[in-house]
């Protein structure tokens, strides 16, 4: 038995690099507030919220192969729930209640839509199209239903995060505290998804992505698996939306828009889908690039995104970061020939 095990490629060898990388990143992120200015801190905080959004899509697109083009719809549900439901709750728990409500609504919408689509056998490109339509409708609602959503002008008044229990209350108002809250949520999400997808569950999803018919033949309820992935992924997107509404203090139809849906696909694609940490880095890089490009002319950014999609399909279908990693591995192998021989 042992000889067979040794002949197989060692599974532990590869993730170790990721572990070091993510630990290093986490230390950097945790120490960042000690030397940076408040503005850069808010930029990174917002980037981490979008990274959480990217991770939610990666869980679905990367791990189970189903691409949604309407993920911003769920981000938007989470975001709009904050200023709409939050003010109804007079205590410091307002943001928590609104967050739970928004995530619940997102989950229900995702369950209903997902049930009909996934159990209807809608897969691949078809699924992408219908979710795109979902996003368009959500955007129309955000603009058109102005009594509720404030229309084009958007809404302000998302309550700050806080907790009130046994007469004690604590509110998170400071941007450094918000930063750590966002870091904690992103880290926790990454860890949970990483652990979950690293084991049996992840391999079932990979099997579904590879060949769904075969996975079903082996006795897995593939539609059920995909529905659960879709619902959880959408709920995570709603969490990201809720965080965004609170820290920015403002929600506009942009946050359900098609461009946001597109951008999140870019973030995941840059980082390499299915890697979970990749989309986080992808989001950081893309948001930084967006700032640079938009400071020249804000109308250039959609052009860059468009060109990126076309280039990606032909030049780096697995994402930018995996490509860079391959290059670096090759360069490393050339520098230190013995490491290749070992």
């Amino acid at each position: 038995m042992t000889s067979v095990d040794q002949s197989l490629p060692r599974r532990t060898a590869w993730p170790k690099g990721w572990l070091v990388l993510s630990a290093g990143l986490l230390v950097l992120v945790l120490l960042y507030p000690t030397w940076t200015d408040p503005y850069s801190l808010t930029v990174l905080r917002d980037a981490m919220i979008f990274a959480l959004f990217a991770v939610s899509l990666d869980y679905m697109w990367g791990k189970s192969g189903v691409l949604s083009f309407g993920h911003a719809a769920f981000f938007g549900i989470g975001a709009y729930a904050m200023p709409i439901i939050g003010p109804m709750v007079p205590t410091a728990n307002a943001a928590l209640v609104a967050l739970l409500a928004g995530v619940a609504v997102a989950g229900i919408v995702a369950f209903v839509v997902g049930y009909f689509l996934i159990f209807g056998g809608v897969r691949g490109p078809y699924f992408t199209i219908v979710t795109l339509a979902l996003c368009l409708v959500a955007q129309h609602i955000a603009i058109g239903w102005s009594e509720m959503t404030g229309g084009d002008a958007g809404l302000i008044g998302a309550p700050p995060f806080g907790i009130e229990m046994f007469g004690l209350s604590y509110l998170i108002l400071d941007s450094v505290e918000q930063y750590y809250l966002v870091t904690a949520i992103l880290t926790a999400t990454l860890c949970v998804l990483w652990l979950a997808c690293g084991g049996h569950y992840g391999r079932v999803l990979a099997a579904i992505q590879d060949n769904e018919v075969r996975a079903r033949t082996l006795g897995y309820n593939t539609s059920g698996y995909l529905l659960v992935v879709f619902v959880i992924s959408c709920m995570l997107a709603a969490v990201a939306g809720a965080l965004y509404a609170v820290v920015s203090g403002y929600v506009a139809p942009d946050s359900v828009g098609l461009l946001l849906s597109t951008q999140v696909v870019v973030w995941v694609a840059v980082g390499g889908r299915g890697t979970l940490l990749g989309p986080v880095i992808g989001a950081f890089l893309a948001i930084r690039l967006q700032q640079v490009v938009s400071s020249i002319d804000f109308r250039l950014w959609p052009l860059v995104v468009g060109a990126f999609f076309v280039a990606m399909v032909f030049l780096f279908p697995d994402g930018v970061l995996p490509l860079v990693r391959r290059w670096m591995a090759r360069a490393w192998g050339r520098l230190v020939p013995s490491s290749g021989a070992r």
Binding site: L67, L303, V313
Partner: peptide, 25 residues
């Protein structure tokens, strides 16, 4: 891209963004 439906979606979506934004510019 005949054999890669998802890639076609991404590529044509990119083309669509480029055309929209170029016309606007």
């Amino acid at each position: 891209l005949y054999t890669r439906p998802l890639a076609t979606i991404l590529a044509t979506w990119g083309v669509s963004l480029i055309i929209q934004q170029s016309l606007q510019l």
